[in-house]
Design a protein around this nucleic acid. Sequence first.
DNA 1: CGACGGATTGAAGCACCTCAACGGGAGTGG
DNA 2: CCACTCCCGTTGAGGTGCTTCAATCCGTCG
Lengths: 239, 239
Amino acid sequence: MASVAAKIPELEPDHPCFSCAVRELAVCGVLESAALRAFKATGPTVHYEPGDTVVFEADNAANVYSLTSGLLRLSKLLPDGRRQIAGFLFPGDFLGITMEEEHAFTAEAVAPSTLCKFPRVRFDEYVAAHPQLERRLYAVAAHELAAARQQLVLLGRKTATERVASFLLMLSGRCSAGLGTTEVDLPMSRIDMADYLGLRIETVSREISGLKAARVIQLTGRQSFRIVDRARLDQLAEG
Amino acid sequence: MASVAAKIPELEPDHPCFSCAVRELAVCGVLESAALRAFKATGPTVHYEPGDTVVFEADNAANVYSLTSGLLRLSKLLPDGRRQIAGFLFPGDFLGITMEEEHAFTAEAVAPSTLCKFPRVRFDEYVAAHPQLERRLYAVAAHELAAARQQLVLLGRKTATERVASFLLMLSGRCSAGLGTTEVDLPMSRIDMADYLGLRIETVSREISGLKAARVIQLTGRQSFRIVDRARLDQLAEG
DNA sequence: CGACGGATTGAAGCACCTCAACGGGAGTGG
DNA sequence: CCACTCCCGTTGAGGTGCTTCAATCCGTCG
């Protein structure tokens, strides 16, 4: 998302968004102080625990959200229970890119998550009144589209090993715990990984074990890992 | 795309876009006569034959396009030759949704195709100057994103039968030859179908044969078919 | 008519799935 | 503090859906 970041106006210490860690990533980042203050005033800050549903597919799309902390998954269920996760939302990501009346996917919290919630009607007014916000929203949509299409390649043509390797690399770009360390956070369950990669949980587990045995990665707890051989992982991800 | 159509201004008979069959679908549809005339003047009309490359992945994204007739495929090649088609572009569709410097996918003509070509720089100027165009572009991006995510579900979780059934239904919505007839055009090769559905050509062929044998569809030539049992096809597509 | 490319059909293989058992850390209660 | 349980993850063995390899068909074009 860094590629769509713009320059960020300074905020006074009493501003409601002053301590927002992701303002420079989020769509709100393009608004100057007064506009942002009014914008933020249109909706509350909400919190969800793991497993909580933020929006349900087929729900009326009455609100849009900006994720400030935590992790969400976007998923769809087939009638017989098969599930596909279309993507994960990280802090700074926007939830609600649609021109339809209803959401197409369910959004659920994977980790404890905090979001800024905006009524869609007010949000649309703001977008219409602030061209730079509209532009930013388009940039975000274009970025998400590119990511979704990249995922199409993974699901349509990559092997299990390639999928898992690609996923771990993606995480290393998004979840590098502390800068300077090579340790990467693995914030979702194996089930979520499997449903994102179009695999079964056992296959994901086997592939991770395989990468570990090949000394490409190293598990540092069940929720984190370290990339030992980055070049090899890149190579495995590409096919 | 009908869902993102807006009201269309009338054009005088000598307007360069007067006879454009897809103006009401395309992004240009929101521009009024004079603006559209000036907009169209920024770039030529170009034509491609089947197999021709319109843009190559990693090419500098110097131009954007609006497809007025024909059919394009958006694809990506893995190093070893595996190919995934991320989507097809039908008349009225827009090519060039990106904020990056380079295209992420190759666009090639599947059928003889005509496009309006616009230099990106001039196009961006127009977008900045015409808020309704920007809005429309966002709507198009949101629509494409929803379609791509729907395709993720297909590739990640659907069986071969479900994939082919879903595809035929999609085509019946896009390529119904003449209104009133139930005949549907099948404008791409089996290879393209396979690379779009994440299957091999033999599997696609087998599935089509199966649907034919089950009297769900009926082949009316190698490039067209008819849906015999729509309810059954819907059911097969859903799983 | 003969050759070519796309499509179909058949037979065998394999990557991933299914089913099943086991392991280990976290939380609970005695 | 330890025993118990639960849940998630791991590992193993066997099955299957799609792929791979190969042969044939068929419409098109020289």
